[in-house]
Amino acid sequence: MKRQHTQKLAVGLITAAAALVVLPIILVIVFLLVKGIGAISWEFLTAAPRNGMKDGGIMPAILGTVILSMGTSLVCIPLALGAAIYLAEYSTESRLTRWVRLAIVNLAGIPSIVYGLFGLGAFVLFLDMGTSIIAGSLTLGIMTLPVVISTAEEAIRAVPREFRIVSQSLGATRWQTIRHQVLPHAIPGIITGIILGLSRAAGETAPILFTVAAFYLPNLPQSASDQTMALPYHLYVIATQVPGMPLSVQYGTALVLLLLVLSLTLVATLIRTRMRRNRDW
């Protein structure tokens, strides 16, 4: 009898803990929806800011975040994929492998502001790129590497070993085996990792602070060496730097950023479930 009570209590506590995890995200979404939905309009999404950013829209910031996400992908995906394939398929217990793993663990642990300062020193100043989309993309791309490498490596390792053995016993080379048997089945996991990495990059302020983000730009960026506005930085600016900024605009901007990031995560989840359902092993 007593044991059954303990059992019930334990299950109750564990369930409550799990439920508590969901609570903050729901509260954040509901709170932002209630406070920010009033600011969302067609103009808010498609027009440039006016009147000291108090009126108009946030289109340049949305576009900037999209551009930076694409730039981040260009930097991150080839490097991460190469590293993941190396680690999962080719690495032996060598010094190089140990260094690569150590680097990944450390990259993952570096605070984002440090990435920002690194980007400033390395790309903006040393390589003389200036505050530019390319410098920001490189900074965000490097920051995103660890999570994409780790998820991609895991996805590649999850492909059953038998497929590799059968493929090579049929006279396929190692690379053909990776290209035709391993990567196609690892793609869902890899895409999930990329999107999760990107959603983090899209929401970060510190790495773009010194490398690309502009307080206010009258024109849209024309090339990769231009600065751009970006949603997280814009939010930071209007929340702290602009006196008399209407609260609804701040909440509206936050809501747009949140929805953008959440929709990326949702896409990742959808791709994963879809592709898992389609596979027959």
Binding site: E162, F163, I165, V166, S167, S169, H185, R279, D280, W281
Partner: peptide, 15 residues
Amino acid sequence: RRRIGMVFAVPTPLP
């Protein structure tokens, strides 16, 4: 391996 083919104990189709 193309000239010496191999069939395993557990039949393993490729996806």
